[in-house]
């Protein structure tokens, strides 16, 4: 059970991690990075799946379905556009890794 102070600790540490990651990023990567973080919160798909999996009434089923649909769109779309952008970043001296 993730509860009370444990939850707060997780929240705080994760917030620090997020802050640190972006801290010194060059502005050339702002757009791809925003897109990348947009992809990462596509994890909401997992929660939507659980919500739909537990839904009973018709209304819950409909909302759950919409949730999974939207979550899948977030995850897949976020990945595709981020990957397309980052794929193009090349250095002049060597091929991209």
């Amino acid at each position: 059970m993730i509860d009370g102070f444990i939850a707060l600790y997780i929240f705080m540490l994760a917030a620090f991690v997020g802050h640190e990651i972006i801290g010194r990023v060059p502005s050339i990567l702002h757009t791809p990075l925003m897109s990348g973080s947009n992809f990462v919160h596509g994890i909401v798909l997992v929660g939507a799946m659980v919500a739909l999996g537990r839904a009973d009434t018709t209304l819950e089923l409909i909302i759950g379905f919409i949730g999974v649909f939207l979550g899948a769109g977030n995850a897949v779309g976020g990945y595709v556009v981020t990957e397309r952008m980052l794929e193009m970043f090349k250095s002049s001296n060597k091929k991209s890794p």
Binding site: I10, A15, G18, S37, N38, V44, G47
Partner: peptide, 23 residues
């Protein structure tokens, strides 16, 4: 994520929340 007790959602969501705010 907290509501569903889902650690992956909590961590990924918070990281994006903090990183996104800074961005």
């Amino acid at each position: 994520g907290f509501v569903l007790q889902n650690a992956a959602m909590i961590i990924a969501g918070t990281v994006v929340g903090a990183a996104g705010t800074l961005l």
